[in-house]
Structure formats: structure tokens, C-alpha cells
């Protein structure tokens, strides 16, 4: 027998294993929990190293309704988009999302200026309604996030959720809260491997264990700079597997929020007849953005459209066949 022709790449390090959600026995109340990361190979190359966990999908849910949705999203999420609790339940139960990503847009001074109590009680209500862990995102305004998120972290203490995002200029407050309350944290860097690494070091230095950090590499949508994040992720993951512990964190990619900003996902068929059916086009725009990120190494995808979630979920099942 001729020797099998093979070009196998073996690596020395694994990605850190991040645990999401805590069961009753572990001090939380989740009946569904997840592990991500811990892979020893580039995406879906099972013959080169163990890939124990499938990438997971978190449904994007907002605390305030977004009035700037394209028609397809507005129609497909009609009836739930005004009530985050129903919305989350629908996504986790019917659309097949693995977990829920709650974005607290409404705490932003310009978009409702809700306070800590509002945010805390919404998070608690969601935890009561769904069995899955939550990802909880601030509004992006540093001062307000620092005021509200530590409170939400405290009232959800022990549930082992994922909070974000911290950035190089503002990471201490939220990181300290998550360390104290047993949560994980998302470290955001602007499409830059060096900053991603630097921020992970800073967060670890103040006491956050390395296996409780996820990297948000800041992706662009399909057609809007997707290739930048794609290559940054490939570079970071190659470096991680080759031995760089400070880059060996799972990736979280905010697919839905980016994909649905793209013009091609938004314009109606009447405006652009050559682009075909608008709803299907938007769904495919989101699904293909997700697929590209999976090939670059994504561990968590946040997504918006129920149909896109179903498509990508099925694709992940197919990609995980070994």
C-alpha cells in the first residue's frame, strides 16, 4: 500500500474552553448550558486535532424596538419585537437559537436612557422565561455601560453569563464586576490582532481567568469589509494554536447587527428588481456572513432572522460531521 498522501498541520496549543451558563448544582438556574472553544485545529479540520464543540448561535434581542428595520425583518419578527421576553422565548424555542443575546440599547442616553433597575429586571425576567444562558451587551456608551452593566451582573450573579463589550480604553469596571459575580467577558478590539492580545493581557492582569474571555474581533458584513475580520481571525487563531495563549480565546461575531445594515439586505425588490426577492436576499446576506465567519474560526455567532438562524444551524450540523 502506498503511503497516504497527506499534508497535516499539527499544533501545540488549544483554544481555552469557555463555559456558558450555570446549572442549579453549579450555583445558577440554567437548564441548558454550553461549552465552547477547546479546539486544537483550524475550523472543521477534524483530522488535524480535536474539535470538541460546535459553534453556537445567539439570537439578537433588543430591549427597545428598532424602527429602522427593513421590511423583511419587521414582518418576520412582528408581534415579538416590542416585547423582549416573548422575543427571546420565540427565538430560543421556535427559531432554534442556542441562546439569547440581549442588547441593552435602551440604556443609551439618546435611545431611552433607561436605568439600572430597568435593565436588571429585564435580565431577570429573561432568565426566568428561557432555559438558556444569556449574552448581555451594553449600549456602547462607556459611562452609562459602567453604571448599568455592573448592576445587571450583580443581580444575575452565579448564572455564568457573557457580558460585553469591554475595550482597551474602558475595561476595568465591567471586568471587575464579572470577576466578582462569576461571569465571562467579551473583549472588543478594532480589527487588530495586537490590540486583541493587549486587551486580553490587561483583562487577565486584573484577575480575570483566561478561560472566561471571548474575543470580539469587530466584523464587517458581507460586502462591507468582511474580509478584514476574516483574515484577522485566521491570523489570531493560527497564532493561538501555534502557542500564543493570549490569543487563544474563542471568537464571538456580531453577525446580525452587521448584516442587516448592508444595503443589499435592506432594499426592496421594487427598488432593485435585478437583485431578486428582498426577504430571501436579506436572509442569505446574514447566513453567508455567518458562514464566512465560521470558516474564519467563529465560536459564537449572534444572529437576527429566524430563517437565517435555521439555515446556519443546519449548516453547522453538516460541517460538524466527521
Amino acid at each position: 500500500m502506498a503511503e497516504e498522501l497527506r499534508s497535516q498541520q499539527m499544533y501545540g496549543l488549544r483554544v481555552h474552553e469557555l463555559k456558558l451558563g450555570a446549572t442549579r448544582e453549579e450555583g445558577g438556574s440554567r437548564s441548558k448550558v454550553f461549552k465552547i472553544g477547546n479546539q486544537a485545529a483550524m475550523p472543521f479540520l477534524f483530522k488535524e486535532g480535536e474539535i470538541p464543540y460546535a459553534p453556537i448561535i445567539a439570537a439578537e434581542v433588543y430591549d427597545v424596538p428598532d424602527d429602522d428595520w427593513p421590511q423583511s425583518l419587521a414582518e418576520d419578527l412582528k408581534g415579538v419585537s416590542k416585547n423582549p421576553v416573548d422575543w427571546a422565548a420565540m427565538m430560543a424555542e421556535d427559531a432554534g437559537a442556542d441562546l439569547v443575546c440581549l442588547k441593552l440599547q435602551g440604556i443609551h442616553p439618546d435611545f431611552g436612557d433607561k436605568n439600572s433597575k430597568d435593565a436588571g429586571s429585564l435580565a431577570t425576567a429573561l432568565l426566568k422565561r428561557v432555559k438558556t444562558p444569556l449574552i448581555i451587551l451594553g449600549c456602547g456608551q462607556g459611562d452609562k455601560d459602567n453604571e448599568v452593566l455592573p448592576y445587571v451582573s450583580e443581580v444575575t450573579k452565579g448564572e455564568r453569563l457573557l457580558f460585553g463589550c469591554v475595550v482597551q480604553e474602558n475595561y476595568k469596571t465591567l471586568t471587575a464586576a464579572c470577576i466578582a459575580d462569576g461571569h465571562n467577558i467579551i473583549a472588543e478590539s478594532p480589527i487588530d490582532v495586537n490590540i486583541a492580545k493587549q486587551l486580553n493581557i490587561l483583562i487577565s492582569d486584573i484577575g480575570m481567568p483566561q478561560d472566561r474571555i471571548a474575543i470580539n474581533p469587530t466584523i464587517g458584513a458581507l460586502g462591507y469589509g468582511l474580509e478584514y475580520a476574516y483574515s484577522i481571525m485566521e491570523r489570531a487563531r493560527s497564532a493561538a494554536l501555534s502557542g500564543d495563549k493570549m490569543l487563544a480565546m474563542p471568537f464571538i461575531c456580531f453577525v446580525g447587527q452587521e448584516a442587516w445594515r448592508a444595503k443589499e439586505a435592506r432594499v426592496s425588490e421594487a427598488e432593485s428588481p435585478l437583485w431578486g426577492n428582498a426577504r430571501e436576499r436579506g436572509v442569505m446576506w446574514e447566513a453567508m456572513t455567518a458562514i464566512a465567519m465560521l470558516q474564519a474560526g467563529a465560536d459564537i455567532l449572534t444572529m437576527r432572522h429566524p430563517k437565517a438562524i435555521k439555515i446556519v444551524k443546519a449548516a453547522i450540523a453538516e460541517l460538524m460531521k466527521r
Binding site: W275, E280, M288, A292
Partner: peptide, 19 residues
């Protein structure tokens, strides 16, 4: 279907851009 081919061709355009 154009609604599927447009995203596919866009992905190709992205991936094959010279970094």
C-alpha cells in the same frame, strides 16, 4: 436566483480582494 447569487458573488469579491 439573483437573491442568492448576489451574496455569493459578493463573498467571492471580498475573499479575493488583495489584502
Amino acid at each position: 436566483k439573483p437573491e442568492y447569487i448576489l451574496p455569493l458573488l459578493t463573498l467571492r469579491q471580498n475573499i479575493f480582494t488583495d489584502p
